[in-house]
């Protein structure tokens, strides 16, 4: 009998987590604006903005996210896309409090993190975040 209650409670918890995740996943949020240098990234900053993606090998939505960001960086001139293997940069992962992959950071031309999205973001949201990061565009 206890087992049945455990099943019902687990499914209820799963539904709650699932619905919250569906609503929050990939949502672009403002950040407190830490600055990343080209040395931190291991590659140069974009001319106008940089999209930084943290990925791992065991990450399902990382590939789709990579496609979206590559599309966006092709679409918007002066925007570069940097993908970082989270495992080989655990220092950066801890410093930036990255809990999941993919996590996408939007950096302005100076390397200041202006937006952050945990989970696969939608293309329109990335474009909107870029518009905020690159005011003159």
């Amino acid at each position: 009998m206890t087992g049945l209650w455990v099943v019902l409670a687990t499914l209820a918890l799963g539904t709650l987590i699932g619905v919250i995740r569906l609503r929050r996943d990939g949502r672009v949020r403002d950040t407190d604006g830490e600055r990343l240098s080209a040395a931190d990234l291991g590659s140069g900053l974009g001319e106008r903005a940089t999209l930084v993606q943290f990925s791992t090998a065991f990450c399902q939505p990382c590939r789709a996210t990579r496609r979206i960001l590559a599309d966006v960086s092709e679409l918007v001139p002066g925007v570069s896309h940097v993908e970082i293997d989270a495992e080989s940069r655990l220092d950066l992962v801890r410093r930036l409090e990255i809990m999941r992959t993919p996590t996408v950071l939007v950096l302005d031309r100076a390397g200041v993190i202006v937006k952050k999205a945990a989970g696969q973001p939608r293309k329109a949201d990335v474009l909107a975040a870029l518009a905020a990061a690159v005011p003159e565009s």
């Binding site: 799963g14 987590i17 995740r21």
Partner: peptide, 26 residues
């Protein structure tokens, strides 16, 4: 129940809880 939760999230929502645990474990 923990295994059930992960399987249910995958079946119902397509979320892979085990995969997400990878970075936290690392």
């Amino acid at each position: 129940a923990a295994a059930l939760l992960a399987a249910f999230l995958n079946a119902a929502f397509g979320f892979c809880l085990g995969c997400e645990m990878y970075l936290l474990i690392r």
